[in-house]
Amino acid sequence: MSKFLPLWPDSASTMSGQVDALYIYLLLVAGIMTALIFISVTVLAIKYRRVAGREATQIEGSTILEIGWSIIPFFVMLTFFIWGAVIYFKERTPPADSTEVYVVAKQWMWKIEHMEGQREINELHVPVGQNVKLIMTSQDVIHSFFVPAFRIKQDVLPGRYTTLWFKATVPGRYHLFCAEYCGTMHSGMGGDIVVMEPQDYAQWMAGGATAPLQETGKELFAQLGCATCHRFDVQGRGPNLTAIYNKPVLLEDGRTVIADENYVRESILNPTAKIVSGFKPVMPTFQGIVTDEQLNALVAYVKSLAQPTPGSAGLQNQPAASPDQPQNMQVQ
């Protein structure tokens, strides 16, 4: 990208080439249409300019022409729609093997947390060639995660998760912008996406990492006393959370929902919203008790239970939180 007069953005993800191709197609069609209109108007305006002794010839119209210039553009537009929808579908469907990164937006910074426990602010380090899925939420107003070089953007909302994924292809440093107006320093709420070669990334990741995110979540799970009801050995007062992630859950009111990130999040913050069939609405809300970062850790932990790893298997012998500690378990 020219630093003096950039006419085209950097292209650094698997998606950027596809978006560019569609954009060029649209530019071509739009260019042809614009030229058609401009040239017709100019030619007609000159050819039929008023000359003494020549009167205008009255023409009522032509139904065939009208139908033609309604239907043909429509079919051209259909190609825009289909191509655009295909790209959108890819952009919105993260591959299963994605590395997950949690993003918490607030006025006016991006807080990033890797599964390995690495935290960064206004910077996101990712390796080349790896699918990365961002699980994002906002602490306050609506923000939008925008990386022009990847051609991706997703609003980040308070109170729920939205996701975004990409696969970087070219190492380098790229702009991260907030694209949804969020207050005073909206234009300062940016940063960099640092795309690294895998070995550099591994080296970066090795420095200064704390515990992995699901480990933090596991500790919280114990601290908050979740384990007293959500037991892994016998049926507790709450559902067993082993392997529920991304599985359908039958609810008390007969509906079935998929236990995705948003469901897990909602069940922690607003437990009565979707009661699992056969259980009572006895869980208190953790709204205001856990921060968004802690919530991310809990969600990461519940998700990790669905993966048959040795770490989660060991949990079954985990003692429940000490029973004599008041755990705020009554309906308020």
Binding site: T272, A273, K280, P281
Partner: peptide
């Protein structure tokens, strides 16, 4: 008992 969230 109906599951109620006071906020709602």
């Amino acid at each position: 008992q109906i599951p109620v969230n006071p906020k709602e």
